[in-house]
Computed example of a mutant assay.
Amino acid sequence: MKRLFIAFSLWFCITLLGGYLTVSYVVQSGDNLYNIAKKFRISPSTILDWNNLANPLKLKAGQQIVVPQPEGYLYVVKQGDSLYSIARAFFTSVSDILIANDLNSELIKPGQKLFIPQKIVGKAFNTEKGYIWPVYGVLSSPYGSRVHPITRQMSFHSGIDIAAPEGTPVFSSTSGVVVFAGEKSGYGLMVEVKSNNSIVRYGHLSKITVYEGQGVERGTLIGRVGNTGISTGPHLHFEVIVNSKTVNPLALLPSSNKVYVLKDGVEAAGGE
Results as ranks from 00 to 15, higher is better:
L83Q: 00
N55V: 06
L252K: 10
S105T: 13
N55S: 15
Y75T: 02
I120K: 01
F91I: 10
K245H: 11
T246M: 08
Q63W: 02
A61K: 13
S9M: 04
T228M: 03
N55C: 13
S175Y: 04
F40D: 04
G30P: 03
A61G: 04
P149W: 01
V242P: 00
S82T: 14
Y84A: 10
P134M: 08
A251Y: 10
F40K: 09
Y131M: 06
K39H: 14
Q28I: 00
L139W: 08
S45K: 02
R146H: 13
G80S: 00
V210T: 09
L221F: 00
G80F: 02
K58M: 15
F90S: 03
F180N: 08
L16R: 15
G186C: 10
T209G: 10
F238C: 04
T46L: 05
H237Q: 07
P68W: 02
S158Q: 14
S158M: 12
N257S: 15
L98A: 02
G233T: 02
G80E: 00
L83Y: 01
P169F: 02
N257K: 15
L59T: 10
P56F: 06
G130P: 06
E166N: 07
T46E: 11
Q64E: 12
F115L: 06
S244L: 09
S9R: 06
D31H: 01
V266N: 12
E267P: 05
Y73H: 11
V193S: 09
A37N: 09
P68S: 05
I230A: 15
I162R: 04
H148E: 05
G219K: 04
V193F: 07
A163Y: 00
I199R: 12
I222C: 01
P134R: 01
V193R: 02
I120A: 01
G229V: 05
T15N: 10
I162M: 03
V27D: 06
N52Q: 14
